[in-house]
């Protein structure tokens, strides 16, 4: 039990609790806030794993942009809580059963099959340096250049798509 393990366990608890809170909150705004908390803990995990760049991106993009967008939409639509509906009553119990089965199976697989002594993370000090960041950037822009460009095009397409979706409404009003 070293200090890092303690940090990990505490954060894992917070992370799982906030995930559960997200799923079970009545109010969608609280759900969103729980999810933000979860994302922040995941970002801290990234830091522990020696990936500061991804950690910061996670906070900027997920917490800073995506979740704010969610909050906007929830607030604008007034969709904090929906009236209950009675369709598919058999689904909920089945869902619980299946997901718990999934969790048990996954954990069983992870802790029996994948366990080996070499699979231990040891946050490398070198990973946290400026050089490693530069190395990663070089890889991103050489080996992964094509995916990078495709991603940028995808973002552009998404942007255009959203504008088109919103524009239709305005044209109708005119």
């Amino acid at each position: 039990m070293n200090s890092e393990m303690i940090v990990f366990l505490v954060l894992a608890l917070v992370s799982i609790a906030s995930a559960l809170g997200m799923v079970f909150s009545r109010n969608a705004v609280y759900s969103a806030l729980f999810l933000v908390l979860n994302f922040v803990t995941v970002a801290i995990f990234y830091l522990l794993l020696g990936a500061p760049f991804i950690a910061m991106s996670q906070i900027t993009v997920y917490a800073g942009a995506i979740m704010v967008l969610f909050l906007f939409v929830i607030m604008l639509l007034g969709a904090e809580s929906l009236p209950p509906s009675a369709t598919l009553p058999w689904q909920k119990p089945l869902a619980y059963v299946l997901t718990s089965a999934l969790a048990v199976e996954a954990l069983y697989l992870v802790f029996t099959r994948a366990r080996s002594s070499e699979l231990v993370t040891s946050p490398d000090a070198s990973l946290n340096s400026m050089e490693s960041l530069r190395e990663m950037a070089l890889q991103l822009f050489s080996q992964y250049l094509l995916p990078f460009e495709i991603t940028s095009i995808l973002l552009l397409v998404a942007m255009v798509g959203v504008i088109v979706l919103v524009r239709q409404e305005k044209a109708g009003q005119k």
């Binding site: 705004v29 806030l33 933000v36 500061p52 760049f53 910061m56 991106s57 906070i59 900027t60 917490a63 800073g64 942009a65 704010v68 909050l71 906007f72 607030m75 946290n128 340096s129 400026m130 490693s132 960041l133």
Partner: peptide, 25 residues
């Protein structure tokens, strides 16, 4: 001295929105 110091700035800046939007809501 964080090697991604500027990213840190921008991520914290983006977090700052929450206080205001939640206060309003």
């Amino acid at each position: 001295d964080v090697n991604v110091g500027i990213l840190y700035l921008s991520s914290i800046a983006s977090i700052a929105v929450y206080g205001i939007v939640l206060a309003g809501w």
